[in-house]
Amino acid sequence: MKSPLFIPLLQSRIAAGFPSPADDYLDVALDLNEHLIAHPAATFYVRVAGSSMEGAGIFDDDLLIVDRSLEATLGNIVVAVIDGDFTVKRLVKRRNKVLLVSEHPDYPPIQVHEESEATIWGVVTYCLHRC
């Protein structure tokens, strides 16, 4: 997750010609890592296989950015482990029950029992989708 820094070169010369009017406004180029990744040591990537989250704009073969350092709150899309298998679902509460729900009419919600083997692995912060 090292991120190269794009530093613009000083273009104008000192003595000859006119100095660039932009020299006083030099800035560092935008770095997408900085925008997408708040906690590099806790950030992992996950490739999606399947269609059950299409309602949330997550499609087959999309790349998810997952931040493990975040505390999952209701409404978050999370990577969860259920009985040893990974899945991606939205964490919701309905009638006082915490559920992991798909965003597709064909898939039923999964109830998170107190004693069940479901754990939250990380919180999905961004979804990278090829347009």
Binding site: F44, Y45, V46, G50, T87
Partner: peptide
């Protein structure tokens, strides 16, 4: 990149 965790959803 081609070996990141793949999750069936």
């Amino acid at each position: 990149w081609n070996e990141v965790l793949k999750v069936g959803v």
